[in-house]
């Protein structure tokens, strides 16, 4: 591997909920290093702690223990100003396109918020429209058709693509995609994935996929991390982890996914 810079890394990251008897260890002393321009998948079943980890990386949930380093510096999000600065560099796409929008606002608001975040609040309206049109065309949407519409007037695929347009406007260094295609039709999945890859190619964005779908992880990522009960049980390049798994949990996970080219052995359950 050539000299790659570490974009986001963490040591001993832990999240504990509750006290006493209801104490749950959601994320258990996790270490990781994600490089610039890398596509990473964090794979785990429900309850593995992957969503909690994502929220911690985003700064939406506080960490109980451990540190996160962004571009080599320890992350400090103690004030709103510092948080804003951090969020200029890290954004997210969520699983359910329908709930990602405020149903009372027109979809323009979503894009305008991004322009404001980049410091464009004072731009003349025409410039803002130009930026929004460009963002929409990146995701094969026509801004003039969508402007002044409410979220429920769009389809699921359109809404998710608009979320990507939002990312295009913000150009963050890191994007966390939490199951971005699980609620999209299979036929539209490739479109979403292609667009995300394009973003990575154009601006060297690090993409972190959070998913339970091993097939997706294998197809799209450079590195895969397998998470179980809050810990990373295995990590490595996609080929290594999926085709030559070492840990029993990983092997079981891969065996339980239905296959079409190989024989799917049902006797293991």
């Amino acid at each position: 591997m050539a000299e790659r810079k570490v974009c986001l890394s963490g040591t001993g990251l832990t999240k504990i909920y509750g006290f006493g008897r209801t104490r749950t260890l959601a994320v258990d002393h996790v270490d990781f290093s994600f490089y610039e321009g890398e596509v990473v998948s964090i794979v785990g079943e429900s309850g593995s702690g992957k969503t909690t980890l994502a929220k911690m990386l985003l700064g939406l949930t506080s960490t109980t223990e451990g540190d996160i380093y962004f571009q080599g510096q320890k992350r400090d999000i103690s004030t709103q100003k510092k948080r804003l600065e951090y969020w200029r560099n890290i954004q997210a796409i969520f699983q359910d396109p329908f709930s990602s929008y405020n149903i009372f606002n027109k979809i323009d608001a979503v894009l305008l918020d991004c322009i404001n975040m980049r410091g464009g609040r004072q731009f003349p309206y025409s410039k803002k429209v130009e930026m929004m049109t460009q963002a929409c065309s990146f995701v094969n949407l026509k801004f003039e058709e969508l402007t002044n519409k409410y979220p429920f007037e769009l389809s699921g695929g359109q809404m998710q693509r608009l979320m990507i347009a939002r990312v295009f406007l913000l150009m963050p260094k890191i994007l966390i995609a939490d199951e971005p295609t699980s609620m999209i039709d299979a036929c539209s999945r490739a479109t979403i994935l292609d667009m995300l890859m394009q973003l990575r190619d154009e601006i060297g964005m690090t993409i972190i996929f959070i998913t339970h779908d091993l097939g997706l992880a294998y197809y799209v990522s450079d590195s895969v991390y397998i998470m179980e009960h809050g810990k990373f049980v295995e990590s490595g390049s996609a080929d290594e982890v999926i085709l030559r798994p070492k840990q029993a949990y990983t092997k079981r996970l891969i065996n339980d996914v239905p296959k079409i080219y190989e024989e799917w052995d049902l006797s293991t359950v």
Binding site: W87, Q91, A92, F94, D113, M117
Partner: peptide, 8 residues
Amino acid sequence: NLSKLSGH
């Protein structure tokens, strides 16, 4: 969450 991420 997205609103937070947009700096509101």
